[in-house]
Write a protein that binds this DNA or RNA. Structure first.
Lengths: 215, 215
DNA sequence: TAGATTGTTAATCGATTAACAATC
DNA sequence: TAGATTGTTAATCGATTAACAATC
């Protein structure tokens, strides 16, 4: 158990937590009140010891031997750890296909992520709005970031433009960059970066597939 | 070096290869003819020993001490390893925002991935076509998979529908499922699965951000 | 030649899995 | 009580990093 202490929790564990949360919420919806590591592990196809250790890191109370965790309490703890109730504002740059899809995705609100504005350089997109999010000119981006204290930027521009958009963002004060363009971005020290590399995902899936079909 | 031998290459290495390839291609475009592990490592912010080991696994020839690898040859080897020149056909289910964006993304062709048909249950989408890919009724999906020997399915439906779509796909013969819906899917033995879990990515980025801003 | 880079073997690091006493 | 599950400590596993002789 932890008491708001920032014990170091591995990246691997952090990545699993959203899946645990979805699992817990689905159990709760089924009317289940109490949950064990084994139940979660089985639902997700994971090792139960791993789940047990992960949950111990984020739960505010010890699980009870034999019965496990009070599901509602655990949900609160995981959500709290992930910061889903502390809204964070992000901007998105590149309102093309993928950008528009992300703006339109209502699920981000569940994760405490609010896209408050989008930017594009295409005049025919500027002025439109998707899902209540208006598309502004990229030229307005630095001022917007500064005025609204935006800490996170989502990049969905073509690869050629990604690094320069990234530079402008981070210069203006963005401290976390979520990059969907297929390029490796360089960010200054002190800025968090996450590359959503579809090609990397696909490579792993393809290799798994060829192992399955060729052996 | 390897000679079409299926030495076991770790998932971690496979995931890095697409980034190496992009890097190599960018060097080549700059007119560079020969490349060392150090150059790639620096460009991508990785450890050079790691890059050296990774490249050794996929290169068909040994690198030459002092000069490194012939860039063109290495590109061919990496592409070959990743199967980018062996076209693989996939179908996509769920032609909403994200689905439409993926259909419209022309970059997949670079990775040897061709989305040959899309399916949806929404009558107002059926019959349309994006980017030359026509949207058919989900009911036609099993027959399409069987008739065209489709091995890969991309799921971009709302989470409630994902598992049933997945079941139908795999029953019809799909052997690799690329899931973008925010649910954990269960697939039969012998089917490869890759969950594109945006919440997991965001969780890691958010935690990195909060470490940066709160310490 | 001298020195940078290679492939490979060894050491380190971190994450996963196993073992086990405590407990509800 | 008996037995399943907990938290925690130890063992294993795999991936990353270091070390080094070979070589262009």
């Amino acid at each position: 158990m932890n008491e708001e202490r920032e014990v170091k929790i591995s990246k691997a564990t952090i990545q699993r937590l959203p899946a645990y949360l979805r699992c817990l919420q689905s159990f709760r919806q089924q009317g289940i009140r109490t949950v064990t590591s084994t139940m979660v592990a089985e639902a997700l196809g994971l090792n139960s010891i791993q789940v047990r250790k992960d949950l111990a890191l984020v739960s505010s109370v010890s699980g009870r031997p034999k019965t496990g965790f009070a599901i509602q309490e655990l949900i609160v703890d995981v959500r709290n750890f992930l910061g889903y109730d502390r809204a964070s504002e992000a901007i998105l740059v590149g309102a093309g296909g993928l950008g528009a899809a992300l703006i339109g995705y209502t699920g981000f609100a569940d994760y405490g992520l609010h896209i408050v504005a989008a930017f594009d350089s295409n005049p025919s997109l500027i002025g439109r709005s998707y899902n209540g999010v208006s598309i502004l000119s990229v030229e307005e981006m630095p001022a917007f970031i500064q005025e609204n204290n935006i800490l996170m930027g989502i990049i969905t521009v073509p690869k050629g433009a990604a690094q320069s958009v990234c530079d402008i963002m981070t210069d203006a004060g963005v401290r976390a960059v979520w990059n969907f363009a297929p390029v490796h971005l360089a960010v200054p020290q002190g800025v968090a970066l996450r590359n959503e590399d579809m090609a990397a995902s696909l490579a792993v899936l393809s290799k798994d597939l060829s192992r399955l079909t060729q052996d």
